[in-house]
Design a binder for these strands. Structure first.
Lengths: 99, 99
DNA sequence: CAATCACATACGCTTGCGCTTATATACGCC
DNA sequence: GGCGTATATAAGCGCAAGCGTATGTGATTG
């Protein structure tokens, strides 16, 4: 599984969003997705770990998950060349409006 | 299917890359993915169409596909808040190196 | 050291994706 | 109108993703 597939899953994006605010324990993350069971969340976290989007640090019997800063950069690198398309598009739109 | 899933597929990213260079007919796109059959490519193009990443324009019996400028912006919007993470990370790294 | 808590893994199931082969549709040319 | 060309859709299949239930593992507490 690569970063793109990892991020394609809505529940995993949700988890990333929570970890963007602050680190959290696995249990907190489980509670934040009430529609899923604990094993389901645990597997999503495993995926995010394997593609390098999060990292884990043990704290006694808990496990603290944190966002890994450079994980999403690969997606950002990919999207960069396309960015000029909607920038150009917006510029053209603006010019049109000014006329 | 949403934009994230659409982009998670490597062949579809390939197609977007080609359309970023210039518009192409369906046939040209089929030729550019020699490992896939014509129907397979056609279905990928259908997906890209349905999520608004490309648009089609008929040209006689051909169909010309073009990148739709604002399709990827939804992904870019999503990634934006995370961008500061690796920016901060790089800044910290640089400060560390300067010491 | 037995019981409990926090989390991960195993297993089986269902569902949807992506593929190929076969067929339909629509245009272009003679 | 009939035939090749360009593209889309249909049908069927294999496989992997995501889920829940059940179980394992390791730390904590009495």
């Amino acid at each position: 599984m690569d970063v793109f597939e990892a991020v394609a899953e809505p529940n995993r994006r949700h988890l990333l969003g929570l970890l963007a605010e602050r680190e959290r324990t696995a249990g907190e993350l489980v509670d934040s997705l009430p529609t899923l069971t604990q094993p389901a969340v645990s597997r999503h976290l495993r995926v995010l770990r394997e593609v390098g989007l999060v990292e884990v640090r043990p704290d006694g019997q808990r496990r603290i998950y944190a966002l890994k800063p450079d994980g999403l950069q690969r997606i950002d690198d990919w999207i960069t060349p396309y960015r000029r398309f909607w920038r150009d598009h917006l510029a053209a739109l603006q010019q049109h409006l000014e006329k």
